[in-house]
Amino acid sequence: MVLGAEGDGTGCVLDGPDAGMDAALGALYGGGGAVKRGSAGRSGGLGGSAPNVARWLGDIRTYFPAPVVQVMQRDAIERLGLAALLLEPEMLEAVEPDVHLVGTLLSLNRAMPETTRETARAVVRAVVGQLEERLSSRTRATLSGALDRSARTSRPRHADIDWDRTIRANLKHYLPEHRTVVPERLIGHGRSAQAVRKEVVLCIDQSGSMAASVVYASVFGAVLASMRSIATRLVVFDTAVADLTDQLDDPVDVLFGTQLGGGTDINRAVAYCQSKITRPADTVVVLISDLHEGGIRNEMLGRVAAMKASGVEFVALLALSDEGAPAYDHEHAAALAALGAPAFACTPDLFPDVMAAALEKRPLPTP
């Protein structure tokens, strides 16, 4: 930093890395524009050209940590309309991958040229891999515990008795003179321990505002589908309904099978999910939507009420993202709550606990 110069009326002029950081911030957020190194003059903006943007993306990755870079990229896309430039492979190679960038790419999916598609898939796969690494182990452990608890029976066959739990539950019946425990209650699992115990339907609103939720739900769908004791179905919808269950082994395929940005017909989606339920008492339906319904409201609520009455556990998530509750339809949320299906936003870290509670039919851990 050089003291004593004019430099914006502050009495100093930035140089070196400080000037570079100021230029990167000024190009995006204004304040007179970007600093030109070695000069007190200032000029602004990214110029809307690919070379300028690519250079700026490289600069911010040099000067700022990854979380800050992700915020600045998101702001650039929203403030400066740079989404179209992401259709160029060179641009995608320069960005810092994150959930919001994936959402933007998915919204551009239909306009994406073949020359960009493989690069875009690589970016999406990198983000999905990070999310799976972060979320999969805890999800499997939490849900496996919930399934074990829900499958316990007090009348197991001899070969299915869980002797460790049985002894601990009957310690008060220990007979010192015989040096043994006389169990009054046996704990064990039924013969279906290795079979499908529960069915989960993830029903995801793919309107533009739900982009992050679609990404996280696809990752969780793949994790659930990898568990043999859970039969998982994944349904996405706007005004139409698409069943992507056969693609659950690869969440990247699921994501590229979505079409962000359409209208919303929750009633049609709920009707489709309802038609696929064969074991209501063992089924959890998770509707992930901001509840801005474009279909028939009363029919949608009637279907939810019917599913609840048949024994289905119905969970309504306004968002599945790190950002908290989005703008949502408060009237529909209140109507679902009155049916015993509270609607709330859920972070990805809380989702395994919500699912575990639903599988065990106990109160949900709402924030």
Rank of each mutant, 00 (worst) to 15 (best):
R191L: 15
P51Y: 12
V354L: 05
L3A: 08
V286F: 14
Y328D: 07
A211W: 02
R165G: 06
L287M: 05
G263L: 14
S229W: 11
Q206E: 03
T239C: 09
G20T: 11
W56I: 01
P348S: 10
H332D: 07
A151W: 11
L318A: 09
S218N: 00
S310L: 11
L234P: 03
D282L: 10
L291Q: 09
Q70V: 03
D290I: 12
G44A: 09
G81V: 14
R125T: 12
G221P: 08
Q206D: 00
A34W: 00
P342Y: 07
F64K: 07
L186M: 15
R297L: 13
K276M: 13
T139G: 10
G31H: 05
A120P: 02
P352T: 06
L320R: 01
G188H: 09
D249N: 06
A23G: 04
A193R: 15
L224G: 02
A356V: 12
E96F: 12
L85K: 10
A5G: 07
I266W: 14
D160W: 11
S49G: 07
R228S: 15
A338C: 06
E132K: 05
V127T: 12
G44Q: 11
F64G: 06
D250K: 11
H292Y: 12
L186V: 13
D246R: 13
V214K: 10
H189A: 07
G31C: 13
S229L: 13
R168K: 15
Y328E: 00
H100I: 00
A159T: 14
A225I: 08
A19P: 08
A338N: 13
L359R: 12
V182M: 02
M210P: 10
P113N: 09
K308G: 01
N170I: 06
P367I: 02
L101S: 00
A84R: 07
V285R: 05
A122M: 05
V200N: 04
H100L: 07
H189G: 08
R157L: 14
N298E: 11
P17A: 11
